[in-house]
Nucleic acid binder design. Structure first.
Lengths: 199, 199
DNA sequence: ACTCCAATCTTTACACTGGAAAGATCTGTA
DNA sequence: TACAGATCTTTCCAGTGTAAAGATTGGAGT
């Protein structure tokens, strides 16, 4: 039998992984440092040697999630052969689907807990690198209106993503298409292309 | 000297008021039931005779905030003489400005804490009544595309509001107009009107 | 090989939180 | 006036984040 070593060896990453897993189950609200520590197989105070506080741990988790989002958005933008407008629609769809696939992570990224991102430089930079993908794609579509399109597209995708995972669209007195469809339709309208959902 | 009565008399509302005030100061994260009780001048267990849990108290606060938002939106839509498109732009602007004026309340309304609104019927109804104002205004603007416009406008305003209070627009490598200006410009583009921010 | 230091992890302790339970006080109604 | 229910307080408990101090380990320099 292999006796457990005193030193974990890779505790920092293990804690982040454990927190990620627990997050998906119960949401950030119910995430406990002690549970994270237990899941990683260490004592409840061990995390403090890698993170100054519970918030810092969560900020690190959120930073990793932002990196994943940026990667997914960049992948959607990756196929340079396609039409530029389609690529922007793809980015919006990926954004919304990311939120729907990882609602707890998405809420953590933008939620009130880490609202003052200025306190977490790494987190802020990770968030900006994701936005940067959108700015570049929007500028490629229309150099003059690029920044405005990026802001509008971000707002659109962000609002849709939030409302979708909050289930604000369920039991509404009007017919609502699937989020992914909505994302493409809204993006198309924003770009001045045809392709509205109702035609 | 008037000795304090054993019965508070209007504790439920006082608790909601106190919670509202504390919310604006420190955010929902830091809001403590015991502080709320102290602010209302009662013992720390008194709130449990009016709210089953901390979450229920916060849900009630959020429901009141939704009612206030619906009122503000209805007021923006109130002047029936104006152009229908302008009224929709007004609603979007009011939505964003509400979030900026009461960020903590706004985050509470849509945040993860009360994500499963199905558990709080009053809250859900209050949220839907606010959305209803938008649906009616959008349908008045364009009967056929009303629902789609309402969903798009809501997503747009909601995303912009969230990003604005998260200060996601600060230190961005592009020039960003004031949120209220952005709200009007985005709404105008969505409606197919002129009035983009860059012209 | 030995020493010593710094990093890593554990143990112990504390203040604070949300909530349960039981008792005290008041208010309306018969 | 008696009493029943609503309202509020007191007391208590488990769980949480975090601080502090001690135990264990690996590695660098001699």
């Amino acid at each position: 039998m292999t006796t457990k070593p005193y030193h974990h060896g890779n505790l920092r990453d293990s804690l982040l992984d454990a927190a990620d897993a627990l997050l998906a189950q119960d949401g950030a609200q119910a995430l406990t440092l002690r549970e994270v520590a237990k899941a990683a197989g260490v004592s409840h105070a061990a995390p403090y040697h890698h993170f100054a506080s519970r918030e810092q741990l969560l900020a690190a988790v959120a930073a990793r999630a932002f990196a994943a989002l940026a990667t997914a958005m960049a992948a959607a933008d990756g196929d340079r052969a396609r039409d530029q407008g389609v690529r922007l629609m793809d980015i919006c769809e990926v954004y919304v689907e990311f939120a729907r696939a990882r609602p707890a992570q998405f809420r953590l990224m933008f939620g009130p807990m880490l609202a003052q991102k200025a306190h977490y430089p790494d987190l802020k930079q990770a968030a900006e690198s994701a936005f940067h993908v959108l700015v570049v794609a929007a500028t490629a579509f229309d150099a003059a209106r690029g920044p405005e399109l990026a802001l509008t597209g971000w707002s659109l995708a962000h609002g849709l993503a939030n409302l979708a995972i909050d289930e604000a669209f369920t039991d509404l007195p009007i017919a609502v298409p699937a989020p992914a469809v909505l994302a493409r339709a809204m993006a198309a309208r924003m770009l001045g292309l045809q392709g509205g959902v109702d035609q």
